[in-house]
């Protein structure tokens, strides 16, 4: 049952991904700016540009270009970068893992902080603690992550000199960017957890649990939290996807060589193969995470019908 469900959901991803690549392909080709001109540099002759067009296959009809990209992509062959001439896959891979790491750590941080804060807030509804947590969350939510990043850098790297300001790799380098990127998520998750917990706490089965004589702790953690996590999981999934694509500002602030920065750089230089492959990778991961979300639904709540 479960296996069948997973296989089916994965198969359903195929049309989604084809759609994504198609959209990206079209958008790249209708954006003004001829890649061959950009590659050839300023003052290049018409002939040079024509040569480049010929070499890169840009003279072929659009649908043919797309089909050949697609057939190569299916074999995991994304071609070579127009700018560096290196294999696209070896160009993307190291950058991708940096971004993935950043996104995973940030997500872990947001879930950890968000769920704890949300539960405390819900349990002590309308108390000073609740009001404070929700205010902090609102603040965290409204703060742009690049600005938060800059502030963190200013304080902890420049003024206090506790942590390195830039780069990625060592443990201490990880801390600031993860906080910068994870804060907004933590705030969203805290608010979501709070409202979901409040709804669950008024359910009949919570009253049943209390009528059994269990302690409030058990009521909250065993009976309420697991039910309350169902909507939160959706948010976490979406959040993770957002972090993958949206980490670019944080990557820029902390000078991290992640996938986001790569894409932005290569958009400027019209390096179509790298852009297309990067977006395909991000999109695949995004939809894959959503399948994971669906699966965790099933684990959290047996009632959700997989069909």
């Amino acid at each position: 049952m479960m296996l069948k469900f997973i296989v089916r959901r994965l198969l359903q991803l195929v049309p989604v991904l084809i759609g994504v690549t198609f959209l990206v392909f079209i958008m790249l080709h209708i954006t003004p700016g001829d890649p061959a001109e950009v590659l050839a540099g300023e003052g290049a002759t018409v002939e040079t540009i024509e040569n480049i067009n010929e070499r890169l296959g840009l003279n072929e009809p659009l649908h043919q270009q797309y089909l050949s990209f697609l057939s190569n992509a299916v074999q995991f062959d994304f071609g070579t970068s127009w700018r560096t001439g290196r294999e696209v896959s070896s160009e993307i891979a190291p950058r991708f893992f940096v971004t993935l790491e950043l996104a995973i750590y940030s997500t872990i941080l947001s879930v950890f902080l968000g769920v704890i804060a949300g539960v405390i807030s819900a349990v002590r509804r309308y108390s000073l603690t609740d009001v404070t947590i929700m205010l902090v969350a609102l603040f965290g939510l409204s703060m742009p992550n690049f600005w938060l990043g800059l502030m963190l850098m200013q304080w902890f790297a420049v003024k206090l000199d506790w942590l390195p300001a830039t780069g990625w790799g060592s443990g201490s380098q990880v801390i600031l960017p993860v906080i910068a990127l994870g804060t907004a998520g933590a705030a969203i998750i805290a608010r979501m957890t709070r409202s979901s917990m409040l709804e669950i706490i008024s359910q009949d089965y919570i009253r049943t649990a209390r009528a059994k004589g269990v302690t409030e702790k058990v009521v909250i953690y065993r009976h309420a939290l697991r039910n309350a996590m169902i909507p939160v999981v959706t948010v976490v999934g979406l959040q993770f996807g957002y972090l993958l694509g949206g980490a670019v500002l944080t990557e820029t602030v902390f000078a991290i060589n992640g996938l986001g920065r790569l894409v932005v750089d290569r958009i400027a230089s019209r390096d179509f193969p790298v852009i297309q492959a990067s977006i395909l990778v991000i999109a695949s991961l995004f939809v894959f995470v959503n399948v994971l979300v669906d699966i965790s639904y099933r684990i959290l709540n047996k009632r959700i019908d997989l069909d």
Binding site: R207, N301, R303
Partner: peptide, 10 residues
């Protein structure tokens, strides 16, 4: 309400 008085996840 027997339908809602039991915890759905246990």
């Amino acid at each position: 309400e027997p339908m809602t008085s039991l915890n759905p996840v246990h």
